[in-house]
Simulated scan of single mutants.
Amino acid sequence: MLPIIGNVKLEDINTRFIEQYYKKLPITPSVINSATGKKKHEYVSPSTIKDIHKILRSCFKQAMEWELIEKNNLEPNMVSEEVDMELLMKALANPEMRALLNSLAKTMK
């Protein structure tokens, strides 16, 4: 989370920003586990994406309570149920498909 949104001002994180963030996550390389020194997955896994969503939703809820923001841009259903994450992960395992998605992600920056 930190490398992508860590330096973004809270007021700049709107619904569009969050949608773009979630679109990039499945093609974002995963980080090395500090305990094992290895990556569990090549890319951010579907379960990690859901965990990130829970954390961000909680942060935005607290920001609303502290009156730092007026609207919570992370609605509970923001992680689309229409996307079959297992199918997406299989597609990302294909080098040609991964290259295509990486290319598309670059155009979204």
Rank of each mutant, 00 (worst) to 15 (best):
M1P: 00
P3D: 02
P3W: 07
P3S: 09
I4N: 01
E11I: 09
I13L: 11
N14R: 12
T15R: 15
R16P: 03
R16N: 15
F17C: 05
E19T: 08
E19H: 10
Y22N: 08
K23C: 02
K23P: 00
K24S: 09
K24W: 06
P26S: 05
P26M: 03
I27P: 00
S30M: 04
V31I: 09
V31C: 10
N33G: 09
G37S: 01
S45Y: 03
P46G: 11
I49T: 06
D51F: 07
I55W: 04
L56I: 10
S58Q: 13
C59I: 11
F60E: 02
F60D: 03
K61H: 06
K61Q: 05
K61A: 03
A63T: 02
A63L: 02
M64H: 03
W66A: 00
W66P: 00
L68H: 04
L68N: 04
K71T: 11
N73G: 09
E75Y: 08
N77P: 03
M78H: 09
S80T: 08
E81R: 15
E82A: 14
D84K: 12
M85E: 06
L87H: 12
P95L: 09
A99L: 11
L101N: 06
L101W: 09
K106T: 05
K106V: 07
K106M: 12
T107N: 14
M108W: 15
K109Y: 10
K109V: 04
